[in-house]
Amino acid sequence: MQQEAKSTRRKRLELLDMIFLVILTLLALAIVIPFLNVLAISFATQQEYLRSSVLLVPMEMTLENYKALFQDGRIWIGYRTTLLFLLFGVPLNMFLSTSMAYGLSRPDFPFKRFFVYFVVLTMLFSGGIVPMYLLMRELHLINTIWSVVLVYGINTFYLIIMMNYFRSLPNEIMESAKIDGAGEWRILFKIVLPISMPIIATMTLFYSVDRWNEWFNAMIFIRKNNLVALQLALRSIVIDSQISQQLNVSNVQTDQRFSDGMKMAAVIVTMLPIMCVFPFLQRYFVKGMLVGAIKA
């Protein structure tokens, strides 16, 4: 119906459409081409990289860069650490967020408003990293994965999205279950979760991506060479070596340890999981954010 109304609104392809299409296509290319460039360099030899000005398809394909990357070993440590963050972190996120969001979504109970403000206040005001670091030190969690796992337990924005979703569920189902003698935890697991799969899936995705991209907390709390997060492994391969390049005036091939191909191979390996799932799950991401944006 809405589609119909829109198509009667614009019948021909006007000049305006052409201008917009050209601009949007150029912008989309400005996003896609850097990725293609990274991908091409990761499969190219260093000689070809230095020879060509815009490399989109390598002439002589090589896997040397990936071989060198995996031999370096840092990326393995990174993968292991980040997978540990995911393995322990995401279930914790989901447990804390789901139970709290469902609790807060229940109709009136004493001190409900207090708890809502208790949660919202943390969005407006935060202690920041300095006291958090000292707290972690006092809890003796420095240099363990638990510091990173625990510090990001609930994302209040996600919590509110879930709360709004639970609130929109018909209350009669929960009421009738309660009459049958089911407790709130039972209702949550047996009734609410099965009918809330869309939001549960979306939030699991959001938390997983956040965990995958975790670096700042890991950088502050973990300073052990065999517990480096994946993103930080990438940082040490690409960005830190670039810093030494910038200091040198003649900046061609100063850092012999890492070829540009190997650096780009590291970029590809780090973003591969997100790249693989994103096109299929994009609508969940978008839907998840919209639910929050509209209601919040």
Binding site: V238, M271, F278
Partner: peptide, 13 residues
């Protein structure tokens, strides 16, 4: 959905 480390790496490249 990419971290700033990845984006910065791409930009440096």
């Amino acid at each position: 959905f990419l971290s700033w480390i990845i984006v910065a790496s791409i930009m440096i490249n």
